[in-house]
């Protein structure tokens, strides 16, 4: 997991069913190089400018969302106080 800043919302007109109803946010790692970014699925209610805990590994998204198949790499799993 790593710390990242929420840069803005990403809207997809058409998407894989695993993403249905899940907000996607563009995030930039706090300790990353310029150009590093990730499109993450948020399930904790993060907003623009928030510093968040982001990450993911094979199987994590399936577990979190109780899905058989989840082509999702990065999740936002916490908002830093």
């Amino acid at each position: 997991m790593y710390l990242a800043k929420v840069l803005g919302p990403i809207v997809c007109t058409i998407k894989h069913p695993a993403y249905d109803g899940k907000p996607m946010l563009l995030i930039g790692p706090i300790y990353g190089d310029e150009g590093d970014y990730e499109i993450a699925v948020d399930y904790v209610g993060a907003g623009i400018g928030d510093i968040v805990i982001a990450g993911g590994a094979p199987g994590v998204a399936q577990n979190v969302f109780q899905l058989d198949r989840a082509p999702i790499k990065t999740l936002i799993m916490g908002i830093v106080d």
């Binding site: 803005g8 919302p9 058409i14 695993a18 563009l26």
Partner: peptide
């Protein structure tokens, strides 16, 4: 590598 979403035009403009 798998394509899982098509970005909305307004989002693309902002980016």
């Amino acid at each position: 590598a798998s394509i899982v979403g098509l970005i909305d035009a307004a989002t693309a403009s902002i980016l």
